[in-house]
Design a protein around this nucleic acid. Sequence first.
DNA 1: GTAGGGTTAG
Length: 578
Amino acid sequence: MNCTRLVLRCYSTESTHHVNQRIRSLKHTSGVTRVEEALQLFDEMLQRQPLPSIIQFNQLITSIVKINQYSTALSLYKRIKLMGVPSDLYAMNVSINCHCRLNQVTYGFALLATIFKQGHTPDSTTYNTLVNGLVLADQVFEAVELFKKLRGEKLCEPDQFMYGTIINGLCKVGHTSKALELLRFMEAGSCRPRVQHYTIIMDSLCKDKMVDDALLLFAEMNEKGVLANVITYNSLIHSLCNFGRETEAAKMLGHMEAEGLSPGVDTFNILINSFCKQGSVKDAELCVEAMVRRGLHPDVITYNALIDGYCLRGEIDEAEQVLDGMVERDIVPDIITYNSLINGYCKKKRIDEARHLFQEIQDKGLFIDVITYNTMLQGLFQSGNPSVARELFSKMQAKGQFPDICTYRIMLHGMCKNFQCSEALAIFRSLGSKEMMKDVELYTILIDGCSKCGMPKLAVELFDELLLKGLKLNVRTCNVILRVYWQEGLLVKGKKLLRKMGDYGCLPNSVTYNVIVQVLLKKNECQEAAIFLEEMINQGFFPDSSTFKILLSLIPNVGQDSHMRTIIQKLTSVEGKV
DNA sequence: GTAGGGTTAG
């Protein structure tokens, strides 16, 4: 009798140990495998007699939550409930979080009621999870109200998490200054702000383009003895890069190492990407060397950045070399890698190679995305294959790939250039999406296209339609229609628009004047052209090379004492000095 | 030994 009991107890503790071990090992399993193994373990746990404790179930389900499988997690809780395992506050809190992540805050609040009903007392985690749920649901105002209520009614003393959630929410809706106020409030109180709080606000300041204010706050934080961590540095490095301040970003990296923090592959990738996009792939390569020296391994993102960087510069051979290098290191190229390469071939007008690669990756069974199609379509148009492009456009839709706004811009632009304006217009009119019909870029393409296809009236109508829709104008749109106005002699309209451009938020630029002057010169209206040339120069703009060419060709024909002659002389003398 | 907030790369 005693013996049996002993054996049973041994079996029970041993299996508990075994289960714990398997739960722990789940953390080292990734993605789909983790879900599969977790589900299998869960089934085994349900078979056990006695049933494992709620703690073990919580641990297992948490490992599923960590990989964002919220519905799965909730369904498992439902099942253990059916098996009669009593829930605890941890389980309830995790469930609330799952509902919040699934955009079901309401269910979260329903669970709060259940907690009370079951005689539990919600804790700060419960409330914080709910406040965060409101933030996630874009109900920041409601989140702040709940926060105030909890504090006012002493239901829950706000802790660093709660403050973090609210600061995050305020920043998310653009109220960075309110968040900063709350930070100042914390500094004066007993719940002192941590690095997280500073990081959120610095990041938000940067998103508001106030990078220097962020840097000031960073300095202030350091003075207060709050230590920055890798996330803080990653965020600042990224923001500096976004504003073209790569040198300072690189200095930041040095800074963080001096502080004893180790930058990760992601830190380097931020810099590498930025250098590549800027066109300085050489600097990016130096960054890669620096990361390798630190024992970090470039990943697919690193290689993709380099490949894209080279392709953007048209240095396709270098891009191919990088590709070889990554394959040698067993890093599998993905669709982004191939999109860059296809773009590189297209840029170099090596359309056959682009088409070949496009076919090859499909044969490999790789998923082709809308960017692949867009890249290919653009390449086809630019290499003078409009009909192949149009075939591909049909094919992608037949395959179930929806065109996006870029697809339509590429298509309509390509078609207009190939004198297929009427068909382009037909496509535009048949656009299902209301959003796309409100795209100023599409209008600009069509207006320009119609005028160049000999349909200026249609161009003018389209512009009026655009105004009627209340779409926001940009300089390019104005420049395009101004050319039409001057070509068609619609000078009243033209001059009116020229004057109103500032009100529309787009001041005339150098192109604006070049366009007008060129039209006038081509129409041989030299006097009028001279007036605009002068205005242009007074505004600090300068004729571009094509305007200049026309001007120079006029020299023999303009009279000795004409206004135009003086201007040309002035221009050529300035030109000589420069 | 189970739960809640922050950054990012294409």
